[in-house]
Design a protein around this nucleic acid. Sequence first.
DNA 1: GATGAATGAGCGTTCATTCAT
DNA 2: TATGAATGAACGCTCATTCAT
Lengths: 217, 217, 217, 217
Amino acid sequence: MSRPHPDGRVRAAAVALFATKGFHGTGIRELADAVGLSSATLYHYMGTKEDLLVDIMQTSLDRLLTAAGQVLTESPSPVGAMNGLVRTHVVAHALRKAETAVVDTELRALSPERRRPITALRDEYENVWGSVIEKGQASGSFQVPDLSVARLALLQMCSGVANWYNPGGRHALAEIADMHAQLSLAMLGAEPEPGLPPAAHYIHLVTGIWGDDAAPG
Amino acid sequence: MSRPHPDGRVRAAAVALFATKGFHGTGIRELADAVGLSSATLYHYMGTKEDLLVDIMQTSLDRLLTAAGQVLTESPSPVGAMNGLVRTHVVAHALRKAETAVVDTELRALSPERRRPITALRDEYENVWGSVIEKGQASGSFQVPDLSVARLALLQMCSGVANWYNPGGRHALAEIADMHAQLSLAMLGAEPEPGLPPAAHYIHLVTGIWGDDAAPG
Amino acid sequence: MSRPHPDGRVRAAAVALFATKGFHGTGIRELADAVGLSSATLYHYMGTKEDLLVDIMQTSLDRLLTAAGQVLTESPSPVGAMNGLVRTHVVAHALRKAETAVVDTELRALSPERRRPITALRDEYENVWGSVIEKGQASGSFQVPDLSVARLALLQMCSGVANWYNPGGRHALAEIADMHAQLSLAMLGAEPEPGLPPAAHYIHLVTGIWGDDAAPG
Amino acid sequence: MSRPHPDGRVRAAAVALFATKGFHGTGIRELADAVGLSSATLYHYMGTKEDLLVDIMQTSLDRLLTAAGQVLTESPSPVGAMNGLVRTHVVAHALRKAETAVVDTELRALSPERRRPITALRDEYENVWGSVIEKGQASGSFQVPDLSVARLALLQMCSGVANWYNPGGRHALAEIADMHAQLSLAMLGAEPEPGLPPAAHYIHLVTGIWGDDAAPG
DNA sequence: GATGAATGAGCGTTCATTCAT
DNA sequence: TATGAATGAACGCTCATTCAT
């Protein structure tokens, strides 16, 4: 087995460092050290530091959108769709806590021009959640005081997993996903629906999109 | 002799800048410009940049703890306490979105020694929420899959208000507080309890602690 | 007597270094060393390196224009004006060889936006020479094959003094100015005109504009 | 084993870039891009960047010396020799403006050891002009105030053509050469001599030495 | 109080050059 | 021939901080 491509190792190290110390708190030499290269060599594999951040965010949001798309495809009812969105989101934010945390935290580090398309992707993703909530409210499956407040509250709650999830912690990933699905549906005033796929299904979905090879981030 | 206490205007400007651009993304000259002083003069009003951040966080967490203490004093039941905690938290995170966002985001910018006492304060505050949830679960008022997961999810959700609240937005602050109380209690599987104080009560409580004079942050 | 203002010392050192090693061949730390400051302190007294170059060029061209204006004022005839232009130009390029060489050599180091106004100043100065040649040709005092070729050839020849003038050299400055006046008028096919001011007059004019205080550059 | 000889395309690109942006203002990757090679491959065709500059200058000065030698051979009188030197110099500085400008401008970019032999070549060339002027002055054909000042002024004037010559400009090359011959002889106080070769003769001489194949530089 | 002056350290980035393939 | 990969050194510039006035 050969060493993984430096391009990927740079990205992985950047994800880890940006998540831990923030974009502005991470130096280019620190990143180079983490990869085992000189800072000059780093620029063989990347553009600017900002390019690197943009790439990380874009990739991550693309994957979240892909996952959400698959969930919608296989889930006809609002309750089923919501269940799937929450579980994939939670699983992704647990398995790739660094990567997702960077997306959630470092938007402000981008210059306005670079920020715009990233924000657009994020909005696109959040709109998926919004439309599911809307459909559920319209069909009577959900009872929320306000559509967009519910969407924001829900997303915020589920993204928070990236802040505290611990692979060796008290709860297995599947349990955490289950609990968040349960809490979310309760928040939406929804009746539990029988026959929904178990957490394992969504774990598989997420790992299929993100891949297992690279170090989780 | 202790460090000089930062002038209110310095503190306010720092809060605004740290919230917008992050601690590491904010320069000391930028802060000085915002206050209308030279960077050298700034050091008459503060210790180091890190001292300033610590001070901001400490003050903010102290106030949250004070508010939580008052809520507990006046709320005998778990449902009433939870209702109060959520509303004060939401109101504080709306009226002082910058300040509270800094506390939630910039912990990682602190050196380990300075971080420890701040983390302790934050844990103390979160424990208040935890013990109310525990009491409610024990008394049968709440039905949650896991105590600590519920606590984390709840806090994350309510803190998120600081990210999107807009004073001139679609919903009045009281409405937002009401909605979050409703969503939270639904999440906890609690029956609505009659006779709880309205949002205005908690807005008053928060403004009493934070003061109205300074620009909100 | 106090030390001269660092601002001026920075400019003087920059002029010397830019003239000797070129703009791109001069490092900011090299400049700082020459002034006896740290590179960080340098930025207390200047903007960017390019700002510094622009400032040097602007000042120099302004002075040349001022000198040319005074010459025109006091010289009615084309022969007299040309005599004065050549002598002031040569004297300036001898006494301030570094400064004038920078103007002649480093235009290309400027970014297009910064170059434009400097080029405009240079063109304005060259146009003074052009219109004197034109007037002389029209009045029959000069006999040149082409107006603009004569202007370019003349200016080039006189500017060259900055490349080889040596304060302690074989010829005194006044002699060099005299010779260039003679060569120039011969080139233009002009009859020598009696009663023109001696070189000393133009040396005085130049030193009056440039000042004696700072180190020559 | 000597240094690899730079490929013609590398040399041509270097000449163009050094002339436009200066030696220090031109990057090795920029040069590689211009040739369509990688920067690593460039080093198969050249030694160091400085070697490249030395080679350019040496070749150019060798050619100027060759041209001057041919002129002297075919021109017995000082006036005829001067006429030929000026015309070949002007033609070379027009047809190969980039190359000649690099020689005139970038001497300072060389390290002292590499500069010495180049300076020697340049001095040798300038001495040819000097001795012709001296002979003309001795024989009474020229009337100049000072031998070396005249030499410097003359050379500077004629080299200046490289700064402004434009192949599609108002004047044909032959005209420009004629005018400079006329201006130069006037400067030297020389009577026009009948029977001198036309500009075309010297254009042919220059193109014979420099070759037509490569892009002019 | 308030600031201009000063700096060592570090920033993100590019430099000319080498070398294994 | 040709290049991707690699680097130590340097680039122009900014950082948080100090201190004499």
